[in-house]
Measured scan of single mutants.
Amino acid sequence: NKASVVANQLIPINTALTLIMMKAEVVTPMGIPAEEIPKLVGMQVNRAVPLGTTLMPDKVKNYE
């Protein structure tokens, strides 16, 4: 099972992601793969992401 990116804290809307905000966890359904964490640093979320929520591609601005 592959790990996904999960919010390590509440991430407010329009916040630029940092390493400390994210952790890798095996979750269902799968979100953004954990190996993409370095790519996500500096990207902004387009909505608030509660603690423990899986980061889905549609929650990150300009994620492809």
Results as ranks from 00 to 15, higher is better:
residue 24 A to C: 08
residue 48 A to F: 08
residue 24 A to K: 06
residue 13 I to N: 10
residue 44 Q to P: 03
residue 13 I to M: 14
residue 31 G to P: 02
residue 64 E to P: 12
residue 31 G to N: 02
residue 6 V to S: 04
residue 7 A to P: 00
residue 1 N to W: 13
residue 26 V to W: 12
residue 63 Y to F: 07
residue 42 G to E: 03
residue 40 L to M: 03
residue 29 P to V: 08
residue 52 G to Q: 02
residue 59 K to Q: 15
residue 45 V to T: 08
residue 17 L to A: 00
residue 27 V to Y: 05
residue 29 P to C: 09
residue 35 E to T: 13
residue 33 P to Q: 05
residue 22 M to H: 02
residue 17 L to K: 00
residue 21 M to F: 05
residue 40 L to I: 07
residue 26 V to I: 13
residue 19 L to H: 08
residue 21 M to T: 07
residue 2 K to N: 13
residue 22 M to I: 07
residue 64 E to F: 12
residue 16 A to W: 13
residue 36 E to N: 10
residue 52 G to K: 00
residue 58 D to P: 04
residue 10 L to A: 13
residue 41 V to C: 08
residue 30 M to K: 12
residue 46 N to C: 14
residue 21 M to G: 06
residue 27 V to F: 02
residue 49 V to A: 03
residue 42 G to Y: 00
residue 59 K to A: 15
residue 33 P to K: 07
residue 2 K to G: 15
residue 11 I to M: 04
residue 41 V to S: 00
residue 17 L to T: 00
residue 39 K to D: 11
residue 45 V to P: 06
residue 53 T to D: 15
residue 48 A to W: 10
residue 11 I to N: 03
residue 64 E to Q: 14
residue 2 K to W: 13
residue 56 M to W: 06
residue 36 E to R: 09
residue 7 A to V: 06
residue 45 V to I: 05
residue 19 L to W: 11
residue 26 V to S: 06
residue 63 Y to D: 04
residue 45 V to Q: 01
residue 24 A to W: 07
residue 22 M to L: 10
residue 42 G to S: 01
residue 21 M to I: 06
residue 61 K to M: 12
residue 40 L to F: 02
residue 25 E to T: 08
residue 50 P to S: 08
residue 57 P to D: 03
residue 27 V to S: 05
residue 56 M to Q: 09
residue 45 V to E: 06
residue 61 K to E: 09
residue 11 I to K: 01
residue 5 V to A: 08
residue 18 T to P: 01
residue 22 M to E: 06
residue 11 I to A: 01
residue 13 I to T: 10
residue 49 V to C: 09
residue 1 N to V: 15
residue 58 D to C: 12
residue 58 D to H: 11
residue 12 P to I: 07
residue 34 A to H: 04
residue 49 V to L: 10
residue 26 V to G: 04
residue 43 M to A: 06
residue 37 I to T: 01
residue 41 V to A: 03
residue 28 T to I: 12
residue 16 A to R: 14
residue 22 M to A: 05
